[in-house]
């Protein structure tokens, strides 16, 4: 029986998900005993043209990280879908757009304009061209899509690995379960669906109801490293975020920013954070409520930090 085939690829990713594969360490060597890695550009020299002759569905499992930002990434996503039995959206970018999804607040033309025509270090602006004519050839460059979208807006995704990046243990479990054919039903997120608070070392200090007259910004105040952030008036997205990261940021004495994405069947993480924070406001007068809410700097940027591209408004 030939070894199963595995591939790893990155669309509008950052390399962090690749690092979480490299962090498998000895398990990565164990993986290469069990399977052939046929395509993994950060670590191996195989070229795109090696993928074309592969029969459809001949790759057993492919980990695709990064959202879809441009046309070349879209083509690669479709190609890998065709070549693979199981596609795992690896990391929150592939699952819900990730931080690059924040471009959705500005749109394609504005992000290009800033970088290529406005930044102060430019002496003369310009724009990358879809086609550039040199004396002997025409060089093509992929154009950006109008908006960045999560992977499942371009291809059918079988499983999701949350996190930024997903911890190596989750990646290992997903890969080896896939090779053993022991994955849950298609479409599921390969992590528990319990709020981060449940595994947070500060949970004991989190009262059932929190009453706040105002929010603080991290640079303004000191805080108790053992007590719940929300209870101290510092926004932590833990209650609206899926657990599974080991409360990493909390252990560094910083609040959660929601990189593990929403719990199961939550259609809009930002809206979930809105509802969560609303329960903390200790006022009933509309104007006073508005003042407390106005104390949150850039709420949309914080509540939708990793999931704007998958929000109700943006995914239409």
């Amino acid at each position: 029986m030939p070894k199963p085939k595995v591939a790893m690829y990155w669309l509008a990713g950052c390399g962090g998900c690749e690092e979480s594969i490299l962090d498998l360490g000895v398990d990565l060597l164990a993986l290469t005993d069990r399977a052939d890695i046929v395509f993994w550009p950060i670590a191996m020299d195989a070229k795109y043209r090696e993928l074309d002759p592969l029969p459809d569905n001949s790759i057993d499992v492919v980990l695709i990280n990064g959202a879809v930002r441009d046309e070349a990434q879209e083509r690669m996503a479709r190609l890998l879908r065709r070549k693979s039995k199981t596609v795992i959206a690896h990391g929150i970018c592939a699952q819900a757009g990730g931080v690059p999804g924040l471009a959705g607040f500005h749109g394609r033309d504005k992000i290009l304009q800033r970088a290529y025509q406005e930044v102060p270090s430019l002496e003369s602006g310009g724009l990358p061209q879809a086609e550039t004519q040199t004396d002997h050839a025409r060089l093509r460059l992929p154009s950006l899509r109008e908006s960045l979208v999560p992977l499942d807006r371009v291809i059918a995704v079988d499983y999701y690995l949350p996190g930024c990046p997903p911890p190596p243990e989750l990646v290992k479990e997903a890969l080896f379960n896939a090779l053993d054919g022991e994955l849950p039903e298609r479409g599921s997120v390969l992590a528990e669906s319990v709020a981060l608070c449940r595994t947070c070392p500060r949970l004991a200090s989190k009262p059932d109801t929190i009453h706040l007259k105002r929010f603080h910004r991290l640079y303004e105040v000191r805080w108790d490293p053992d007590r719940c952030f929300l209870e101290q008036g510092l926004i932590c997205l833990g209650p609206a975020t899926r657990g599974g990261c080991g409360a990493q940021c909390l252990k560094a004495n910083m609040p959660c920013r929601g990189c593990f994405g929403p719990l199961d069947n939550v259609s809009d993480m930002g809206a979930r954070v809105v509802a969560m924070l609303a329960t903390l406001l200790d006022e009933t007068d509309p104007e006073k409520l508005e003042n407390i809410a106005a104390g949150v700097p850039d709420p949309a940027g914080l509540f939708y930090r990793y999931t704007l591209a998958a929000s109700i408004i943006k995914r239409r």
Binding site: F105, G270, A271, V274, A275, L277, A278, T279, L281, T284, P286, L289, E290, I292, A293, A294, V296, P299, A300, G301, F303, Y304, S311, I313, K314
Partner: peptide, 14 residues
């Protein structure tokens, strides 16, 4: 009332 106060702060960026 509380939800509307918080929701209104994210509507414009959306």
């Amino acid at each position: 009332l509380k939800r509307m106060a918080v929701l209104k702060t994210v509507l414009t960026p959306l």
